[in-house]
């Protein structure tokens, strides 16, 4: 469990250092992330670090691998969550000189790595088959606004993006459906983040 997280972190740092060494190379290696993602909250951990990739030239289609950590003092137990997030940023509106704004919609899936038998992707052998469905996966949906600052003479970092998101997940939607006193304002929470876009 923890091993997988360490491997992911090592790959991520390796990718970043790899990028730094290959500054001269014009053509980007597909494995090198297009941006480094840092996020606070949003249902996938307290402190989140991620590697992001763009899928088209205009960078409107993206996906990011994220790792989120929630320390013991905030959630009673250390929580390690990995997630995969797909985003669509349909347009780019110029606000002022090299600052622009982009609305975004994202969908993601996360998986928790927790101690003990409580969360699982596959049931322990002593259960009858199909007794529970896996409870370590969660599905997330977010709406956000990104603000992009483009550097005029970029060296390593092309642009910085600050974003704010309002996000929910499958469980919150279930509570919204099952209890009349849960309103839409109860199921959405906030996330803040930065994307450091590499050249």
């Amino acid at each position: 469990m923890k091993k997988a997280i360490y491997i992911l972190m090592i790959i991520m740092t390796f990718q970043i250092s790899l990028r730094a060494q290959n500054e001269e190379v014009k053509k980007r290696n597909w494995i090198i992330p297009a941006y480094l993602n840092l996020q606070y909250a949003g249902g996938v951990g307290n402190y989140i670090i991620g590697a992001g990739y763009t899928l088209n030239k205009s960078q409107s289609l993206r996906f990011a691998f994220q790792y989120g950590f929630t320390p013991k003092y905030k959630s009673k137990k250390n929580l390690h969550i990995t997630s995969l997030k797909f985003s669509y940023l349909p347009t780019d509106i110029k606000i002022y000189k090299n600052i622009s704004a982009m609305p975004s919609i994202s969908a993601g899936v996360s998986r928790i790595f927790a101690d003990g038998p409580g969360t699982f992707t596959r049931l322990p052998s002593y259960y009858p088959e199909g007794y529970y469905s896996p409870n370590a996966f969660r599905f997330h949906l977010s709406l956000g606004a990104n603000f992009k600052y483009r550097f005029t003479n970029p060296r390593n970092i092309k642009a910085l993006e600050f974003y704010i998101e309002t996000t929910t997940n499958d469980l919150y939607m279930k509570y919204y459906i099952n209890y009349r006193k849960v309103h839409l304002t109860n199921i959405f929470t906030m996330a803040l983040g930065i994307n450091i876009m590499f050249k």
Binding site: Y40, A41, G42, G43, V44, G45, N46, G68, T70, K74, S75, K76, L79, I81, P103, I112, A114, T119, R138, L143, G144, A145, I164, E165, T166, T167, N169, L171, Y172, T185, N186, F188, T189, M190, A191
Partner: peptide, 19 residues
């Protein structure tokens, strides 16, 4: 979206449903 994120969230920041 910004206004909804800032003002209408009853629980502003959520770390994980597993907390």
């Amino acid at each position: 979206i910004i206004i909804s994120s800032l003002f209408s969230c009853q629980k502003t920041f959520d770390y994980s449903v597993y907390s």
